[in-house]
């Protein structure tokens, strides 16, 4: 979808004359320059602002707000590609079961593949501790320690964790993002693919409430399916809501507790399509 690619209109204005008017909107027009057609303006609206005596000067910028994060994400991606490692950004709401799923994933995959985990957590090392002992390399990023208590991992945080992983020796890095359905979706970290864990206990309407997160995922893992007999969860309605915001996205039903679907998830992680260079340039 190219969410973080430069927008078509991200070039500076061809007309770089400073605006002398401090009024953002003159004479009730919604906007002086709608930017839809290469910044064309109505004849006569350009240039002569000398009649305004406002003591202000407008400076055109047109810079992507998250441009610096995107720059670091590209650098991370280059480091991953150079090391030949595939990177998956795993996101979910708090309590959806990321860590349990990750433990089951490492139990199955770690004997065969060299795996690194970057573990994002606001304050504790509890999740990282649960992943110890599977033979994976784990780097903890406490977002509450020195990063201002952020609710997501961003590209500079991932960059800070890289020296603590034996990058060249790894096949796969799984980034366990901070549990949050809003913030992590906005921050590319240099990943090849994004997967999100959704628990059936969260309710089938969630894709419509958190469209950015659900739209950004390449794979949605529907977790805790072992609880379905006890819930009124409407699987078809969930799929409809998901398709409304991310048409045709891959979905996998899993239960980290019973192991249902976990092998299929491991296959997705090992999918050669996800290998560096073969992945679609989405971000």
């Amino acid at each position: 979808m190219g969410r973080f690619h430069p927008h078509a209109n991200s070039q500076p204005h061809a007309n770089s004359q400073p605006h002398a008017n401090s009024q953002p909107h003159q004479n009730g027009q919604p906007h002086d320059h709608p930017h839809k057609d290469g910044h064309a303006r109505p004849p006569g609206s350009v240039g002569d602002h000398s009649g305004y005596r406002t003591g202000a000067e407008r400076v055109e910028v047109l810079e992507r707000i998250l441009g610096e994060n995107e720059r670091v994400a590209r650098a991370n991606r280059a480091a991953f590609d150079a090391a030949g490692v595939t990177v998956v950004n795993l996101m979910s709401a708090p309590g959806a079961g990321k860590t349990t799923l990750l433990a089951e994933t490492l139990r199955r995959l770690a004997p065969h593949r060299r795996i690194g985990v970057i573990e994002g957590d606001i304050e504790t090392s509890l999740d990282a501790d649960r992943l110890d002992g599977f033979g994976a390399s784990i780097a903890l990023v406490n977002t509450g320690n020195g990063f201002g208590g952020e609710c997501h991992l961003d590209a500079p945080m991932i960059a800070s964790a890289l020296p603590r992983l034996p990058l060249a020796e790894l096949d796969l890095i799984i980034i366990e993002n901070v549990g949050n359905l809003v913030c992590p979706a906005e921050f590319a970290v240099g990943e090849d693919r994004r997967a999100m864990v959704f628990a059936v206990t969260e309710g089938e309407e969630k894709p419509l409430k958190y469209p950015v997160m659900f739209r950004s995922a390449d794979l949605v893992l529907v977790n805790k399916t072992d609880l379905l007999p006890h819930l009124d969860f409407d699987t078809e309605a969930f799929r409809r809501n998901l398709d409304a915001v991310n048409p045709g996205v891959d979905v996998l039903a899993v239960s980290a507790r019973t192991g249902e679907g976990v092998n299929a998830w491991c296959d997705w992680l090992a999918d050669p399509l996800g290998a560096p260079g073969a992945a679609p340039a989405r971000r």
Binding site: S10, E57, R58, V59, I65
Partner: peptide, 12 residues
Amino acid sequence: LVTSFEVATDAV
């Protein structure tokens, strides 16, 4: 995007 900003000038 950050589209633009305005700066105060001494005199116009």
